[in-house]
Design a protein around this nucleic acid. Structure first.
Length: 816
RNA sequence: GCCGGGAUGGCGGAAUUGGUAGACGCAGUGGACUCAAAAUCCACCGGUGGCAACACCAUGGGGGUUCAAGUCCCCCUCCCGGUACCA
């Protein structure tokens, strides 16, 4: 009698065995190749959701596969524990953010354990722990000493009713999500990390990262956005400071017909002092959120300031406008406009009846009507005085030379990338270790006073940061002069914590330093897996931090992640699953009903990892059915008794065929999991092999031995995906050593050989027949037999065979 | 707006380097087993025509390159992610 598949009992037994043997706890073993397998750690939002299950299962499959390849595998887990949702929960439920967070961590840790992930739990890292964030505070003070951090004004969303800074996500159609008040743009002083100091390295090293997807590298390249251009100065009459602008198209300089400045620009303020219309417009411009998408898609509006700049080449007056699409804190707060050769400038000029001048003509001489359509291509200069007739390159350098000689401009390499603003006017984050002193200005907290601990037992109302109301927190003395001083109450952007946690996993208990020598054993991460939504910010900040740590001398590698797998989102009804949208699916129900293995299997089977997966409940059932068939097949085989050793050379044709299928499948699944990360097709191949085994009617001793080889292989190869059931089946198959210590099965090349192969015959590219040929048949023999096929004859009858193309091992195409 | 990605049967997907479109599974239909149901097993399962052999059509839309295009090129539509304070 075979026993029924009972996932609860099977999974419990496997877990207990792994725990007892401490299978996944690893030290540093220099005799083996290390493999550091990591997922983007979760934000402890409450319960696991399907996106978590997907990313953790992908990584667990890779980790377990690499272990079977003989690697020394580290797979750690931790918690990205600071963030806004804890504050929202605090407002809604009156629970302190810390308690809410720790409760969630406890719940989610249990769920992760239930899913059977091969984690080394002894290395768990939680970012809201002062023993964690003290080290990023420490690094910040080191960066301060090197001039890699600075303070400057920058723009935030201000809710005038709640008197609070809002995240972009909290602004809905220009209004505060709780107050419904129109949001205003405000400039306040904030701390910045000088990521631009590394812009060039971050850009050029992308060329040496073959383990990253091209799409992510392209996005990062475009985000960094290196451009070569010219910075030039326009004089303004009166006492005004000249305007400096940057352009990548100095060749279009004669086409400048107006300029635009930001609402916060001193020239706008000046013009507004005695012009109420301009003052009103300037105020109006500030009533918008600060998101780039808003800025670029909103209606472009502007007003003339009644001030002119002097064109540096022609000497003509160029009118100045104030415009809502120019931001003071990005670049110089001023832009030159060339409506003839820039899309946005053209539309603005049309709307406001500003002159449009053609200064570039197509190189091939074809006519262009600049009043009807903008011309943005590079060409030859016209209407540009002494520069007429030059092409882009020549004009660029001639004009740049002119400005460098006159001192009114210079060639400049510019980056789209902006320095990283790390200040948040929020409570639930790591305190920024700065003390403000009236005499000494901003002073970093000395190392022996770190960490600056965030008080956890607070009342949180959502109006401003509670830290501003806790004198014990902000009242302090200046570390330099000893006078009374005030502690910074802003906290770090949570991306700071996630920019170095991967290195801390190597040495989570290092008490005296941010990292120790164990980081050099484990880093860089060999395989990093996470959502494509992190393609730019998190991954770029991490690459930056890794370099800052390198330059601080505490770690050696420059790049944190050698191979990157960006898994697609789990969507529900076509949209990102999120608590905010309320469209989450609880994996726990499925785990309770079918077990962890079914959930893991279905998640891997439903779609390739890199693709978005629109969740549907249907189909999980099929995964469960497959596991039952799998269980039944092994049990039935085992119940029929033990098997004999056989010589592969003594098999009959049917036995040879199943054995060939087994080794073809090993070949395919090894490639699918190891190289392609194509888990869905790996599972499909395993299903096919199992279907073949179930259809195999040969119950002779030799036949059963061939089946045994197939079953052993399927159990081994599915074990990274469904480890619990495979563990039980491995034991059932009579193996004494635990499955978790088994090597990956090897392909017997001899088993793959075959005498006859099938070739497809096409006529003019359309399938017309199939022929069976010796594997080493000559091209002419193949064509001869293809032409002899009766159906092929029908289609070539009465026509000339112009040629025949033979694709070895695949097909023949007869062209008539 | 800009940057990156995607679209293949009723559904999820396969086709790895330009070479048989629809593997594997879900749903469905018919049958076996059963008093019955569930479970399980067997068969069928893109569309049109045909008794069948087979033929024609078909990979979001339009054009192109090629002996051969889901795959390469050009144009377009829609959807998803990011857009610097969601993480």
């Amino acid at each position: 009698m075979t026993s029924a598949y009972q996932p609860d009992a099977v999974e419990k037994a496997a877990r207990e065995q792994w725990d007892a043997a401490r299978c996944f706890e690893v030290g540093e073993d220099s005799s083996k190749d290390k493999f550091y397998c990591l997922t983007m750690f979760p934000y402890p939002s409450g319960k696991l959701h399907m996106g978590h299950v997907r990313v953790f299962t992908i990584s667990d499959v890779i980790a377990r596969y690499q272990r079977m390849q003989g690697k020394h595998v580290l797979q750690p887990m931790g918690w990205d524990a600071f963030g806004m949702p804890a504050e929202n929960a605090a407002i809604q439920r009156g629970i302190p953010p810390a308690r809410w967070t720790y409760n969630n961590i406890d719940d989610m840790r249990e769920q992760l354990k239930r899913l059977g992930y091969a984690y080394d739990w002894t290395r768990e890292v939680t970012t809201c722990d002062p023993e964690y964030y003290r080290w990023e505070q420490w690094l910040f003070t080191k960066m301060f000493a090197k001039g890699l951090v600075y303070r400057k004004n920058s723009v935030v969303n201000w809710d005038p009713v709640d008197q609070t800074v809002l995240a972009n996500e909290q602004v809905i159609d220009g209004r505060g999500w709780r107050s419904d008040a129109l949001v205003e743009r405000r400039e306040i002083p904030q701390w910045f990390m000088k990521i631009t100091a590394y812009a060039d390295e971050l850009l050029t090293e992308l060329d040496n990262m073959p383990g990253w997807p091209d799409s992510v590298k392209t996005m990062q390249r475009n985000w960094i956005g290196r451009s070569e251009g010219v910075e030039l100065t326009f004089e303004i009459g009166g006492d005004h400071e000249p305007l400096t602008v940057y352009t990548t198209r100095p060749d279009t300089l004669f086409g400048v017909t107006y300029m635009a400045v930001a609402a916060e620009h001193p020239l706008a303020s000046f013009a507004a002092t005695d012009n109420p219309d301009i003052a009103a417009f300037v105020e109006e411009c500030k009533k918008t959120d600060a998101a780039e998408a808003t800025l670029e898609t909103m209606e472009k509006r502007g007003m003339p300031l009644g001030i002119s700049a002097i064109h540096p080449l022609s000497g003509e007056d160029v009118p100045l406008w104030v415009a809502n699409f120019v931001l003071m804190s990005y670049g110089t707060g001023a832009v030159m406009a060339v409506p003839g050769h820039d899309e946005r400038d053209w539309e603005f000029a049309k709307k406001h009846n500003l002159p449009i001048t053609q200064v570039i003509a197509p190189a091939d001489g074809s006519p262009v009507d600049i009043q009807q359509a903008v011309y943005v291509d590079k060409g030859v200069l016209v209407n540009s005085g002494e520069y007429n007739g030059m092409d882009f390159e020549t004009a660029f350098h001639a004009i740049a030379d002119h400005f460098e000689k006159s001192g009114l401009g210079k060639r400049t390499v510019n980056y789209r990338l902006r320095d990283w603003g790390v200040s948040r006017q929020r409570y639930w984050g790591a305190p920024i270790p700065i003390i403000f002193c009236d005499d000494c200005d901003a002073v970093p907290v000395p190392e022996d006073q770190l960490p600056v601990v965030l008080p956890e037992d607070v009342e949180f109302t959502g109006v401003g940061s509670p830290l501003k109301h806790i004198p014990e927190f902000f009242q302090t003395t200046c570390p330099q002069c000893g006078k009374d001083a005030r502690r910074e109450t802003d906290t770090f952007d949570t991306f700071v914590e996630s920019s170095w946690y991967f290195a801390r996993y190597a040495c989570p208990d290092a008490g005296g330093a941010m990292l120790d020598e164990r980081a050099d054993y484990w880093m860089p991460v060999d395989q990093y897996t996470g959502g494509i939504e992190h393609a730019i910010l998190h991954l770029l900040y991490s690459r930056f931090f890794q370099r800052v740590m390198r330059d601080e001398g505490i770690t050696q590698s420059s790049e944190p992640f050698t191979n990157l797998l960006t898994q697609g989102m789990v969507l529900k009804e076509g949209a990102k699953m999120s608590k905010a949208k309320g469209n989450t699916v609880d994996p726990q129900e499925l785990i309770d009903k079918y077990g962890a293995d079914t959930v893991r299997l279905f998640m891997m089977f439903a779609a390739p990892p890199e693709q978005a997966l629109d969740w549907s409940d249907a189909g999980v059932q099929g995964g469960f059915r497959f596991l039952k068939r799998f269980w039944h097949a092994v049990q039935t085989h085992v119940d029929a008794g033990s098997v004999v050793d056989v010589d592969p050379n003594e098999l009959n044709d049917g036995q040879k065929e199943l054995r060939r299928k087994t080794h073809q499948t090993i070949d395919k699944i090894s490639d699918d999991i190891g190289r392609r990360h194509s888990f869905n097709t790996a599972i499909a191949a395993a299903m096919e092999l199992l279907n073949a085994v179930n259809k195999f009617g040969d119950h002779s001793d030799i036949g059963r031995a061939v089946v045994r080889e197939s079953l052993d292989a399927v159990v081994l190869m599915l074990s990274p995906i469904v480890p619990h059931i495979c563990d039980a089946l491995w034991q059932a198959l009579g193996h004494a050593t635990p499955l978790v210590d088994q090597p990956w099965p090897a392909v017997d090349e001899a088993a793959l050989e075959r005498d006859l192969i099938e070739l497809v015959v096409q006529v003019n590219g359309k399938l017309r027949g199939k022929i069976s040929m010796a594997a080493d048949a000559h091209k002419d023999a193949i064509i001869e037999q293809a032409l002899a096929d009766p159906n092929v004859q029908r289609f070539i009858a009465g026509k000339n065979v112009r040629k025949a193309i033979v694709v070895p091992g695949r097909l023949v195409n007869v062209v008539v």
